[in-house]
Design a protein around this nucleic acid. Structure first.
Lengths: 193, 193
DNA sequence: AGAGAATACCTATGGAGATAGTTATTTTCG
DNA sequence: CGAAAATAACTATCTCCATAGGTATTCTCT
């Protein structure tokens, strides 16, 4: 249910084709809400059919092929704003890492160690990406943000950047907490075996 | 894909009926991997048909009604152990909270504040539950854990408890990080409006 | 004893999400 | 200049998950 709002949010920056959306997505809202393109293309169509986006056919290649360029409609913006104003509902976390951690006694100690080492690797890599993106937001070099700011009054810029970076601060803090937890896990394993 | 292993993990403690599973689930593995009973019952059946669980029909009530008591088979334990030994794959976080946070400039400031206040409430409540459960694991009063320990050599107990509490430590640390983040959000809102 | 509440057990359905493709066009480089 | 690689644009399918039910049995209270 959130994917559609992630897509609208992305497209408020500027109109994009499906492919552009699916690429940009990975480097911006995608950090916040992951989705593969097999989900993105159909959802874009659905949003168009519901009138939240317009889809303009743009010629592509030689034959009568076209690609679709999507833009947010007034109805789309309204729906997004409405979602942003809706009350919070509790969120069920569902992270296999905790499940595996709880039952690490079932695993082969070597495999458990390998597992934690790759977890550590994943978290470290993600931290790098998140911090780099956060920096690009803060100095306004992030392309999606830059496009968005262009259509907006200068006085608002600070406020918008503050919220965008705030979201990344949360993800970074979580990532750091997870990383520390994984390191504790490695120590725990070492102490036990 | 993790639900089945959460169910097997729960049932290694002792055999349970579907209803017992769905109740105990919420108070143990369910913290780690949430699932509604509409998912639990069919998955139990599937696991039975795959031979990872046995389902014994137990009479219930007057007429020829029965309920099913499930127990883990050797194949089930093997499958669980195999899963525990499989390599890690990166996990895509998908938390609507970050999406909303990033675009808080679209929300009505009052609504945004209300939203963050309920988020704070959710995190606080969950923290209480997690810490209480962690304590029950540490002092061995947690019923699912206690049942599991009974069938296991005393020398292993410490190690098992260490991993179970370790998982909760991770969830608690994440919850604390999130809570702090929400509080930062409230301050950010207050500063901006 | 009978009504209502709580417990026990389970199903139907639709949408969200993961995995794994396909086809066409443009760029690169030996 | 032709083959291989990269880019662009999508689709099909199957499983997972959420929402929202349903019915039978036992407990509780007046």
């Amino acid at each position: 249910m959130s994917l559609r709002y992630a897509l609208i949010a992305l497209l408020t920056g500027r109109p994009m084709t499906g492919y552009e959306v699916s690429k940009r997505f990975g480097a911006s809202v995608g950090h916040v809400w992951h989705a593969p393109d097999s989900q993105i293309y159909p959802e874009l169509r659905r949003l168009e059919s519901e009138g939240l986006l317009t889809g303009e056919d743009v010629p592509w290649g030689t034959k009568a092929r076209t690609k679709t360029r999507y833009a947010v409609t007034a109805a789309g913006e309204a729906a997004f704003r409405e979602w942003m104003n809706s009350p919070a509902s509790p969120h069920h976390s569902r992270d296999p890492a905790y499940l595996r951690a709880a039952y690490l006694d079932w695993a082969d100690p070597m495999k458990a160690r390998q597992y934690l080492l790759s977890q550590k690797q994943f978290h470290t890599e993600r931290l790098v990406v998140l911090e780099a993106t956060r920096a690009m937001l803060a100095d306004r070099t992030h392309p999606v943000l830059a496009a968005r700011l262009e259509s907006i009054d200068e006085a608002e810029h600070e406020r918008i950047i503050a919220f965008r970076t705030y979201a990344y601060d949360g993800m970074i803090a979580r990532e750091r907490a997870d990383l520390k937890w994984v390191e504790d896990g490695l120590r725990l394993l070492a102490a036990n075996d």
